[in-house]
Amino acid sequence: MSPLIMGLIIVVAAAVIAGGTALLQQRFSPPQSREGYNEVAGSVFEIVSVLYAIVLAFVLIAVWEDMQDARSITYSESSALVDIFWEAQDLPDEQREEVEALAFEYADRVIEVEWPEMAAHESTGLAGWQIIDTMQSQFDQAIDITDETSLGRAQDAGAAIQELTQARTDRLNMTYGGLSSVMWLVLIAGALLMFGVLLLFGIPGRLAHVIVVVIAASMVALLLFSVYELEYPFARGIAVEPDAYRLALERMTHIR
């Protein structure tokens, strides 16, 4: 289901539940019976809402930045793979062809195998790491360090492989991160507490009370849904796509 449609459904559902709760409350507890709580409820609501807004804003910014970092990491990884492909062009034919084949295999594996595994929060296994290790061994076999030129070639190849390794590590670390259960407890319990305090107000007029409660519930539901969608950069509705690796495949095909 599209994140837009799912978000709309969740917000509407939250608005209906909140509005229905407010109407039931008005039926069994008229606003006049709660007007004496307004001053105390106002002070409590101000404290709860401010603290909750700070926590929610911090979490939303954090998961948004993680999403941007994840997208950047994919391009760093794919760029390092292309650099390795370029470095292989100076190798003897046997090693060059082997490294080229490994580079294509790596990109294909990330797109076709690892991306679905990351979306399902499954382990990607050791195959990707083994491809990197094999590429490193091909460079080690092909480059005989006898002078500064060969030393520079070995260092450049090693740097590219190191960058690929680091970017891959960062990508996999972000795949299985997400918010802790404690943080989700804070976010959900905080929303319920804020909603509960809001119901204590004795607002004259049934429509005005319902509107205030519905607006507050809808906004909180929308923000919580945003956090949920952004929590895992490589999963859910707005996940990062493997576009960087498709671009790397195109570049390597052109280089070859």
Rank of each mutant, 00 (worst) to 15 (best):
S2Q: 03
L4Q: 03
L4H: 11
L4V: 10
I5C: 00
I5S: 00
M6L: 10
M6Y: 11
L8S: 15
I9W: 03
A14M: 08
A15D: 11
V16W: 12
Q25V: 05
P30V: 00
P30F: 03
S33C: 05
R34Y: 01
R34W: 03
G36T: 14
Y37F: 15
Y37R: 07
N38K: 05
N38S: 03
E39Y: 11
E39N: 13
V40E: 14
A41D: 03
S43W: 15
V44R: 12
V44D: 02
I47A: 12
I47F: 08
V48D: 08
S49F: 04
S49Y: 03
V50L: 11
A53P: 08
A53T: 14
I54R: 08
L56T: 04
V59Y: 02
V59H: 01
I61N: 01
A62K: 11
A62N: 07
Q68W: 10
A70R: 02
R71I: 01
I73D: 03
W86R: 15
Q89N: 08
D93E: 12
D93H: 06
E94H: 07
E98N: 14
V99T: 02
E100L: 10
A103E: 05
A103H: 05
F104T: 10
E105G: 02
R109I: 02
P116C: 07
M118T: 12
H121W: 08
H121L: 08
G128E: 06
Q130L: 07
I131T: 12
I131P: 05
I132V: 12
D133C: 10
M135F: 04
M135Q: 06
M135S: 09
Q136L: 05
A142Q: 11
A142G: 06
I143H: 04
D144K: 03
D144I: 13
G152E: 15
A154C: 08
D156N: 14
A159H: 10
A160N: 09
A160K: 09
Q162V: 15
E163P: 02
E163M: 08
T169M: 13
N173I: 13
Y176R: 14
L179Y: 01
L179D: 00
M183F: 12
M183G: 02
M183D: 06
W184T: 00
L185E: 05
L187Y: 09
A191F: 10
L192R: 14
M194E: 14
V197M: 12
L198T: 13
G202D: 08
P204D: 10
P204T: 09
P204Y: 09
G205Y: 06
R206G: 09
H209R: 09
V214Q: 04
I215W: 11
I215V: 14
M219R: 07
L230F: 01
F234L: 13
G237Q: 02
G237T: 02
V240S: 00
P242I: 08
D243A: 13
R246P: 05
R246A: 09
E250Q: 15
